[in-house]
Structure formats: structure tokens, C-alpha cells
Amino acid sequence: MVSRHPASVLAIVRRYEAAGFRAWPAAAVHYDGTWVVRLTAGHPAKRLNSVNPLDPGDIQHIADRIGRASRRFDAYGRPLTFRISPLSGPDLSRHLDSEGWSSFDESLVMRLPLADAQLAPAMDQIPLKDISRFIGASLKVSGSDVSLRPGLSEIIGAIQPEAGLFALEEGNEPLATLICVHDGDLAGLFEVATDKAARNKGHGRNLILSALKWARLRGAREAWLQVEAGNAPALALYRSLGFEEVYRYHYRRPAGA
């Protein structure tokens, strides 16, 4: 058995996976067959530092290829991490199971046809042009360490599709931030965050709707995002906006890593 998913489902997954790679680019990308090895020295995010298998049938010499990937991760000082989507296939998962690899951090990929979104009341908002200002706001509302500033700046600067940097502010205080990447008929939402002291007041919802309105005016027909399965408040928000699950992925690391 190569895959438990029909070809039509895998084609949809491939579309979102490719959009995700374009929208959130790693600093270094290597290919081993159809495994995409993504590494980023300046940012520790798992999606920027992971092996991403893209074909359920590409299962030759798994142990040797894991060894090659491990050496690349060691060179970057990153823990060897596989990102397992429906494109990885059951054979690879069985191999990792047999080697005692752990599974963690399941996430959902969700979509929303923009024709179904209630965007008319959304505030018209122009994205920030000042990347430095946006990054400062993003780090503050997400509670992230300021040491991530150079890495985040590098990632945003490398995004090839049009990226809208959105921040909702009250005076000089940022309340919520997000990045909306307009890529053809897709609008991807990334780094969605609301300041801890300003949550449950609708700021995140309002900013998302403004960003999607911006993207739809530029020709986007569908919004999509990735959210951790354990983030109940975010899932509730996205579902209330009409987002529906497309597929899930999770991460795996060797035993003891």
C-alpha cells in the first residue's frame, strides 16, 4: 500500500504544501528525491527546519536518507525533525514507528472560499510598508523573544508572492498582527497573534477580515491557514469565520531527541 488517500486528495494537499513553502520560505532548501529538507539558521520554527516528504511512493533507502538529513540538521545545530503530512504516506510512518520516533504538535490546514466570507463590513486597511515596525509589533503581541527579529526579517524579505503586513494598533500600542500572503487565487494567513492583554475583544477577527478583504480585492478566491490542533481559542475563531479543515500534519523526532 502506498497511500490511504486518493489521488484527488493528495493533489489538493500538494497545492497547499507548495503555497506554504512559497509563503514562508526557509533559508536553505535541499532535495533528496521528493523529500524537501528545509533549514533556517536564523529562526527555530519547525516548519522552517524540517524534512517534508512529498510523495507517498518515495520510500527507497529510508534509513540512508534519514542519515543524510541528520547530518544536515547537525550542521545547523537543529534537531532532526520530520513534518508528516498525507504526502508522507504510511510506509515512512511505519518505519519511524519501528525506530521509536515520537510524534508531536499536530496542526490543521484550513480553508475558506472568499465568496463565502462576510467581508463587506470589514475595515479597509492598507498593509504596513515598514517591515521593521511590523516585526516589532509582531514580536510584542506574540510574546516572542527579540532575538528572533533578524531571522523574522530575513524570512519576510524572502517571501516571493505579495505579502501584506497587517497590524491593528491603539495609539502606539500594537493589539494584533498578521501576515497575509497573496499568491494567485490563494490568500495565506501567517503569524496571526493578538496581545495577551487585548484578547477576546474581536481584534484578531477584525484584522483577519481586513486582510482577507485586501486579498480578495487583489484576486484571491480562497483563504487558508495553519493552526495547532491544541489551540482551542484560535480554532473556535477560525471556524466561526467559516474556515474548514482540509488536512492535518504533525512532527516527528528520533527517540530521545
Rank of each mutant, 00 (worst) to 15 (best):
V141R: 03
T177Q: 01
P150H: 05
S153M: 10
K196H: 08
G184E: 15
L139D: 01
L175E: 09
S138L: 09
E191A: 10
I156P: 08
A137G: 05
L186T: 08
S142Y: 02
G136M: 05
E173I: 15
I156Y: 01
F134W: 15
F134P: 15
K129Q: 09
F134Q: 08
D185Y: 10
E170G: 00
A193P: 10
I159N: 01
L165Q: 10
N200A: 10
G136L: 03
P127K: 11
K140P: 01
R149F: 02
E154F: 02
L152R: 14
K129D: 12
L139N: 04
D130R: 11
V192W: 00
L168E: 14
L168T: 13
N172S: 10
I131P: 06
E169W: 06
C180E: 10
E169S: 04
L168R: 11
G171T: 15
R199G: 01
P150R: 03
I156S: 01
P174W: 05
I159D: 03
S147K: 09
Q160M: 08
E173Y: 08
L128W: 03
A197I: 06
L186K: 00
L168G: 05
G136K: 02
D185I: 13
G136P: 11
E162A: 08
I131E: 07
L148G: 02
L168V: 13
P127T: 14
I131L: 07
L186I: 10
A198N: 09
I159P: 04
F190G: 04
A176P: 11
E170M: 06
G151N: 07
P150T: 09
S138H: 14
A193S: 14
L152N: 04
N172F: 06
S142K: 14
D195P: 12
G164A: 11
S147N: 07
D145R: 05
D130C: 08
Q160Y: 03
F134M: 07
G157E: 14
L168Q: 13
L165P: 06
N172D: 11
S153A: 10
S142A: 14
D185A: 03
R133G: 04
D195Q: 11
S147V: 14
T177F: 06
L175W: 06
C180K: 03
F134C: 10
P174G: 02
I155K: 00
L186S: 05
D185V: 15
P174M: 12
L148R: 14
G157V: 15
G136Q: 03
T177P: 03
G184D: 15
S142W: 05
D185L: 08
I156T: 13
A193C: 06
